[in-house]
Design a protein around this nucleic acid. Structure first.
Length: 582
DNA sequence: TTTAGAATGAGAGACTCG
DNA sequence: CGAGTCTCTCATTCTAAA
């Protein structure tokens, strides 16, 4: 059914070749990183509409409800920065060794987790042995590490920061990196922050002070940093590490050691997010370079998305049959009515809303004014603007219409009627589909898993939606052994459940409705039962990132989009549990 | 009570032109 | 090189009609 057909070059595809074959380089060095938008800057100045919302927000970051309620009572819910700082202080105090013993059993973490744990560990071990060790470093490295030690960072922290950021990194960037790691760790309440019993009882004050300094410093830096800070540039053409029809695709890349799987992970979101968002996402996801791909190279509709993943990229292969790549091929009936002055060959991004019947009526009436000739340029312009904005296609003489849900399903690579029936309204279908993966694109990226897991995989699927990843793997012929799927929408869960049953899946599907339910206990239980997860997939909400959102395009700290941090939290937990159980 | 329609721009990249 | 223009965007919310 599906076979390796990566060698598709002779095909005459319609996309412009000349200047689209060169692969855009994505500068992603530490020097290009801005201040991480991490937890320290969440919701600055945002006054929650209700107290419980503010509580939820911070509880979502891993603080206990009791603690959050207390802090809000003390400081009010207006200034979330103050709340966060106080919470960090309290949680730092709470992790003092005395209490540590009560709720954190000494755990036997191995290397990968160990250094993460040590980020928040005792800083009093800066002694002469550090200086001895430094003798092994080059003078350049030594010059970088020494000031960090002087600032009170541990040798391990300094070394890791240097390793991750590179030799050319400035001191400010190194401290920034360490802060980011600490904040990330502090935000993760479930995670055992300390992995070894501590003998020194006085470090919590160090930690508290350091966390506060970090928080303040980073807010200051955020204010100082202007537009000249480098951000991740989108490649042009947007083909990531390559698409099936591109004969010059990249087959090699370096993945930071901390990111190497298993577990493999695959994270997705809109490419055109506000500035700095992808820098933050990439930094949290172990500094993996995002792969930006426009699905117009896979199907007849554009879909500009960024994917951060640690999958191999050699010998990728596409799903077969290859989907139609022009509007006319995808929806042949439109060809008959397509006017010569509509030059579109691809649709724009498939969104959650469609053009109204009133709009298409207005267009029809405007065109009927000119029954015997082409409409004047002004009318053409009006019609084309609306057609592009609403993705309208020609379905009759002077008649345009929005795409049918069936057509969107097909364009996105889902089986026909995937979202149909079972009490799902038309509006719900549009909404679910508009929020989904483009299956062919995702499948192309995931295809390298087939050789790695011939017997199937265990998958953790966060923000599953209508199951784009599940469908992609199934169509690739990769058996789904155990799938834990987290999806807030009941409509979507029903769609996936129904697909699961209709495709006679042999595996086991577990549904959760909220990522908050996925704490370390629950996760460990699943992983004990299934023997770990091979793949962690997720496309966290884009509401606050997408350009279409007029009201709350608040960036990664927005109400829904901040759930990205839950993706990171859960992925990091999976990584640590897997490493420990090795 | 439910649902369709309309109103609501900004932000960022690509492109053009002098 | 810089200013101006064009293009596009996994949406939310209010209102009126059904």
């Amino acid at each position: 059914m599906v076979e390796n057909t990566s060698d598709l070059d002779g095909e005459n595809f319609d996309w412009d070749t000349e200047d689209e074959l060169e692969i855009g380089n994505i500068p992603l060095s530490c020097s290009s990183l801005t201040v991480p938008g991490g937890v320290a800057t969440i919701g600055s100045g945002e006054a929650g509409p209700s107290c419980s919302k503010t509580i939820d927000h911070f509880v979502g970051m891993g603080f206990s409800e009791k603690m959050v309620a207390k802090v809000i009572q003390e400081h009010g819910e207006e200034n979330t920065d103050t709340i966060l700082e106080t919470l960090l202080t309290y949680s730092a105090l709470e992790e003092s060794p005395e209490e540590q013993v009560q709720h954190n059993e000494p755990d036997n973490f191995s290397s990968d987790c160990d250094y993460e744990g040590s980020f928040l560990s005792d800083f009093s071990d800066i002694d002469s042995s550090d200086n001895e060790d430094l003798a092994n470093l080059s003078s350049d490295e030594e010059n970088k590490i020494r000031p960090l030690l002087a600032m009170g960072y541990s040798k391990e922290e300094a070394a890791i920061a240097l390793e991750r950021c590179g030799r050319d990194c400035s001191l400010a960037e190194l401290t920034d990196f360490i802060c980011a790691a600490q904040m990330a760790r502090a935000a993760d309440g479930d995670y055992p922050l300390e992995v070894k019993p501590r003998l020194n009882g006085d470090y919590s004050n160090h930690k508290r002070r350091r966390l506060l300094e970090c928080s303040k410093q980073r807010r200051l830096e955020k204010r100082i940093l202007t537009e000249d800070d480098e951000t991740i540039r989108l490649p042009n053409p947007m083909i990531g590490f390559g698409v099936p029809t591109d004969s010059f695709r990249r087959v090699r890349r370096d993945i930071p050691e901390a990111a190497i799987g298993p577990p493999y992970f695959y994270y997705e979101n809109v490419a055109l997010a506000p500035k700095g968002v992808w820098t933050t996402i990439s930094r949290f996801l172990y500094d993996v370079e995002p792969e930006f791909v426009d699905s117009k190279y896979f199907c007849a509709a554009a879909r500009k998305r960024g994917y951060v993943h640690n999958l191999p990229i050699e010998n990728r292969f596409p799903l077969l049959p290859l989907p139609a790549r022009t509007i006319h091929e995808a929806i042949p009936l439109t060809k008959k009515w397509w006017p010569s002055w509509d030059s579109r060959t691809k649709l724009n991004c498939l969104q959650t809303c469609i053009g109204s019947a009133k709009l298409t009526e207005r267009i029809r009436k405007a065109l009927e004014e000119y029954p015997d000739s082409e409409p004047p340029m002004s009318i053409q312009k009006y019609v084309m603007d609306e057609c592009r904005k609403w993705n309208l296609v020609w379905v009759g003489r002077n008649k345009v219409a929005p795409l049918e849900p069936d057509e969107i399903e097909m364009l996105l690579g889902f089986p026909r009627n995937h979202t149909r029936g079972g009490g799902i309204s038309r509006t719900d279908r549009y909404k679910s589909l508009g929020n989904s993966f483009q299956v062919d694109t995702v499948a192309y990226h995931l295809s390298t898993l087939k050789d790695l897991y011939p017997n199937g995989i265990n998958m953790l699927s966060l923000f599953s939606g209508i199951g784009g990843a599940e469908v992609a793997l199934h169509r690739l012929g990769i058996p789904l052994k155990n799938v834990v799927s987290v999806e807030i929408s009941e409509v979507n869960r029903n769609i996936v459940r129904s697909w699961w049953e209709q495709t006679s899946q042999k595996g086991y599907l577990e549904h959760l409705d909220d990522v908050q339910q996925l704490n370390s206990d629950r996760l460990e239980e699943y992983m004990r039962k299934f023997g770990g997860f091979d793949l962690v997939v997720g496309g966290s909400p884009c509401n606050n990132l997408a350009g279409s959102n007029r009201h709350h395009r608040d960036g990664l700290e927005g109400k829904e989009s901040s759930l990205f941090y839950d993706y990171f939290r859960i992925l990091d937990l999976v990584k640590c549990i897997m490493t420990r159980n090795e």
